[in-house]
Design a protein around this nucleic acid. Structure first.
Lengths: 234, 234
DNA sequence: GAGGTTTTCGCTCCAGAGGCGATAACTAGG
DNA sequence: CCTAGTTATCGCCTCTGGAGCGAAAACCTC
């Protein structure tokens, strides 16, 4: 850090800064978050979010990716975005630690093998979590639910290819209610979020008409007509 | 900071952390941002956002309020919310400084008296700004525009009482296009964002029918039917 | 090929955004 | 007091897009 003149130095107070990842995925029909069990004090034996400090040459995104790698194959994380930064003085009993949350999403069909201290937990029946981590989890689920309805973020929860029934169940788990399959199809196709392929799924266990296989048009986050109201003139 | 046992210490790297406020307001029919001119190096004579470091007992909100007080009467800031946190290593040439942005809004009718180094600048014709501050300004205007259409955030840009014409001009300045007065009224009243009072404005300079005086139902941020799509069953 | 199952399509309905012209409600000037 | 000018507001229409339901399609098994 070149400090040329005396008056040029930054003399703002410094704080340890951590990044925390709320990795969400639909497991077994339920929206789950990836947690690991702390082996050491403080908050020993409580479940915590993956995360940790930020190295001096790292940006947040690299830092969170690095910490995440200890718990899960980061190539399985299809989407990652920043949440809010918390500044509560006592969120960590040991020292004042600032924390920036991240939302990560893993498609429902990938099955990363996890370390023995790590597991998926349904967000509807969370165990006691360490520190203030539940705040981050709430923020993350809220963000996911909001974005499901005005972005294509579903791509990060769904397999590369899927049927409408599967997608409806995914949305159902993530949103907390089941959208109608008819409407879901119409809405997402009209917005060019998903596209039918020319193949059909082999009709499952109990017979029935084979479903069309769909895929997301793009697997990068796009906002679809974000503000349906107070539109600009055309 | 009580560090009980050796292993209990947090040994994450620490960084200076600053908070920056993007204070927006409609001045003279244009959306403006509050900037002050740096007198010292680095980036001397460039325009910068209000802000600064975070004291050890402060939370971000208190910190930003404190720094803001040096430039403007904070009671005039009707709304304040956090934006993203930037972690670029070289955003400040002197040292690595993490920065959390805030969006602040000042109603168009309050005229805070500003220090001589501080002034409003239209966001459409910004001067060269210091550091990476233009990124924060872009994020702030984007957030404001988005929220204008699905929240009641307009209360923080408008006077306590106003006519529809005034409100239309405010929205026009903030959004970059003029919504139709008819539609604006219908949308905002149907959503119970604004309410007519029983008084009328004295018809201005050039005659004409006196306009009904409206006011915002509440002056706290509320989200109005955030997700107009993929609704839950009723 | 009959009966069961699941998907998909067509039809309708409805809420809410958006536009435009007619009318209301004032001022100013004669 | 009447008229012209100006601005606000309301009523009526359209249009987009979400939501529901039942019939038909497409498969399976027996």
């Amino acid at each position: 850090m070149p400090a040329t003149k005396e008056g040029d130095r930054v003399n703002f107070p410094s704080y340890p800064h951590e990044v925390l990842a709320v990795v969400l995925s639909v497991r077994d029909g339920r929206l789950c978050v990836l947690l690991w069990k702390r082996a050491r004090s403080p908050h020993r034996d409580r479940w915590a979010l993956p995360g940790g400090g930020v190295e001096s040459t790292e940006r947040f995104r690299e830092a969170i990716t690095g910490h995440l790698a200890a718990k899960v194959d980061v190539r399985d994380v299809a989407h990652l975005e920043q949440l809010a930064t918390h500044s509560r003085v006592d969120r960590d009993p040991r020292a004042r630690v600032l924390a920036t949350g991240y939302l990560g999403l893993v498609p429902s069909d990938v099955e990363p093998d996890l370390p023995s201290d790590t597991a998926w937990h349904p967000v509807e029946e969370l165990p006691r979590t360490a520190f203030d981590h539940h705040h981050f989890i709430e923020a993350a689920t809220g963000r996911l639910r909001a974005k499901l309805s005005y972005t294509n973020i579903g791509f990060a929860l769904a397999p590369l290819e899927f049927t409408i029934a599967e997608l409806r169940d995914l949305f159902g788990a993530a949103l907390g209610y089941q959208p109608g399959a008819t409407n879901l199809t119409r809405v997402l196709t009209r917005r060019h979020v998903i596209d039918p392929t020319d193949r059909r799924a082999s009709s499952g266990q109990s017979g029935g008409r084979p479903a069309t296989v769909y895929k997301f048009v793009t697997r990068e986050l796009t906002v679809t007509d974000p503000f349906a109201v107070l539109r600009p003139p055309r």
